[in-house]
């Protein structure tokens, strides 16, 4: 599959696109937790690592089929998500974020010390199974699922919790279950993304899943516009491609990246697509064009 694609696409682009797809899946998971449900998570990289190590180890030791490994990695991450979701019963806002940050670092330290994960030396010898097609089929699947979820009864309950948890409880929404559910589904996405990541790089190191990665993911969804799927996609795309596109600036690349983040935030404080309803925007722009044709020379 990859060899076939390489005839048409430069392998470098292929690599960047695959990475983008993987980040998209993970970011959409975080979008459900933070964007839709309003539960701050600073530890999304931990779910990524659980999925990555889970899938990789199952593939190496039990020789399971790739898709099954991905699924298992996702489920393991979901389990971890449930485990983290429960403290969210007691904690809210920044405190929840900080607890997840702590959880993320603990997971990293554990992977750093376990024998089976190769410790600090990392886990090598993972077969390369991920290809562009698999990644993007899963991206589309994730987008569709999250979109449908968001517009279902479950999704509306999540939004209600984000807007006002107490009011939601009064309306008969058991916020605990919904919050834990959101964590589980969001982490499942991250776990699947982690499995893809592991089978793309063929090597895992705990150092790649530190809190910096978690904040990177958070930046993806906030910068695009918190709470909107298109925002999450746009933010992830821009911030994943920006370091590549800024390569022309050589040594100054990361300085420009940092400046870009600050500038975009100041320019669009609610995210690039924050407060923008894409469907309405498209509809209204069509409508205004209609109007333009009927009343020329701008009345």
């Amino acid at each position: 599959m990859d060899d076939f694609l390489k005839q048409f696409i430069n392998p470098y682009y292929l690599q960047v696109l695959m990475l983008l797809g993987i980040y998209l899946i993970a970011a959409l998971g975080l979008h459900l937790i933070t964007g839709v449900t309003g539960q701050l998570s600073f530890g999304h990289a931990a779910f990524l690592s659980v999925g990555a190590y889970g899938a990789a180890l199952l593939n190496i030791h039990l020789d399971l089929p790739f898709l099954l490994c991905l699924l298992a990695g996702g489920l393991l991450a979901a389990l971890a998500g449930v485990f983290v979701g429960f403290p969210s019963m007691r904690l809210s806002g920044d405190y929840l974020g900080i607890a997840t940050l702590g959880f993320c670092e603990i997971i990293r330290v554990v992977f750093m010390n376990l024998e089976i994960t190769g410790g600090a030396r990392g886990l090598a010898g993972i077969p390369r199974e991920t290809n562009l097609l698999t990644v993007y089929i899963l991206v589309i699947l994730t987008i569709v699922t999250i979109y449908r979820l968001q517009n279902s009864r479950f999704g509306r309950a999540l939004v209600a919790i984000r807007e006002d948890e107490i009011a939601a409880e009064c309306m008969g929404i058991r916020s605990i279950w919904y919050k834990v559910g959101a964590f589980a589904i969001g982490s499942f996405c991250a776990g699947v993304a982690g499995g893809l990541y592991a089978h793309m790089l063929q090597y895992l190191n705990p150092a790649d899943f530190g809190f910096v990665r978690s904040f990177e993911l958070l930046c993806f969804i906030v910068l695009g516009g918190l709470g909107s799927i298109s925002g999450a996609i746009l933010g992830t795309t821009i911030l994943t491609l920006a370091p590549e596109m800024l390569r022309f600036s050589a040594e100054y690349r990361m300085m420009m990246y940092g400046t870009l983040m600050v500038a975009m935030m100041i320019f669009r404080p609610r995210g690039l697509l924050g407060g923008v309803d894409l469907r309405r925007l498209i509809r209204s722009s069509f409508r205004s064009r209609d109007r333009d044709t009927t009343t020329p020379a701008g009345g």
């Binding site: 392998p11 470098y12 292929l14 690599q15 960047v16 990475l19 990541y197 793309m200 790089l201 090597y203 895992l204 190191n205 790649d208 370091p243 590549e244 390569r247 050589a250 040594e251 690349r253 990361m254």
Partner: peptide
């Protein structure tokens, strides 16, 4: 080229 000490970018830069 620089990979910022990140594994994923290491792969990208190699490609």
């Amino acid at each position: 080229d620089d990979h910022r000490s990140q594994s994923s970018e290491g792969a990208t830069v190699t490609q």
